[in-house]
Computed example of a mutant assay.
Amino acid sequence: MQIKAEQLYLGYDEENIVKNLSMTPPIGKISVILGANGCGKSTLLKSFARLLDARKGQITLDEKSLSSYKTKTLSTHIGLLPQNPVVPEGISVMDLVLRGRYPYQKMFSSLTKKDFDIVHQSLSMMNIEDLHDKNVDELSGGQRQRVWIALSLAQDTDILLLDEPTTYLDISYQIEILDSLMTINKKKNTTIVMVLHDINLAARYADYIYALKEGELIKEGKPEEIITSELMKEVYGLDCKVIEDPIAHSPFVIPKGQYHQ
């Protein structure tokens, strides 16, 4: 399915956070939204999940207004992993991931074999099958993030939105999470749109990048096309040099800053 924003304005109270933004994330690809803190990245993802209404402009899903979809139907097409999801107290991994199947349940019906099969597949894709009976509160940060992504996978949506899925994780966990998302993208052809703070990881894993500044989209394209020292200066105020990543052959940003000689 194709999600599309056209001349979008979003905000809170009297302030517009996102201004006149149009974007069409490519179907079946990984798109990453970059930008400094407060530039509207999370706000944009919330609007894609219909948690925030547009002030102007519109968001469409397969050329139908997002607002025209029933909530339950929309939940079978778009999944969102927010920045700081709240874990229900005392819930097990299995019970939490099973919640991803609720949009498919009919009134007064119980979960089916298909539901449990999809949940087990989701746990398997995130390599956490052995944690199914563990309490989510007892898990490490990396394990917990895998559970949340498994929940999103169990929702079995065409589009997956992730707001900083690697924040606060050690570098090894970051790589594991992003490798898993790339596998999901390839195996299921899921359209993934995520916010990342690490520019180099974004350049390595993204098929397409959107660069925001003060709520406006200032550049978009493939990483090798748009990740330049000029863009980093414009978006982050960062003096840097951009070289080729010797492993991924993607752009690699080296900040200048101060250093010991």
Rank of each mutant, 00 (worst) to 15 (best):
E63N: 14
S67V: 05
L34Q: 09
L212D: 00
T43N: 13
Y173A: 04
D95T: 06
E224W: 09
K29R: 15
L8S: 09
M107R: 13
L8M: 10
D133N: 10
L96A: 06
Q7D: 15
A206L: 07
C39Q: 01
Q258F: 15
G141F: 01
N84H: 15
I27G: 06
D198K: 07
H132S: 14
K213M: 04
R101C: 09
K41L: 05
L153F: 06
N20A: 11
F108L: 13
A203M: 01
M126P: 03
D133E: 14
D245N: 15
P246T: 10
S140V: 00
E14Q: 12
A248V: 00
V86Y: 10
I243H: 08
I159W: 04
E6I: 14
G257S: 05
E63A: 11
E63Q: 10
E244P: 02
N16R: 14
S92R: 14
Q7V: 07
P26Y: 06
P255D: 02
A5W: 02
L111A: 11
I243D: 06
S67A: 11
I149W: 00
Y69R: 01
G141C: 02
Y236I: 02
L162Y: 07
D198P: 15
R99V: 03
V87H: 04
I171M: 14
S68T: 07
I192N: 04
K219C: 13
L10A: 12
D133Y: 08
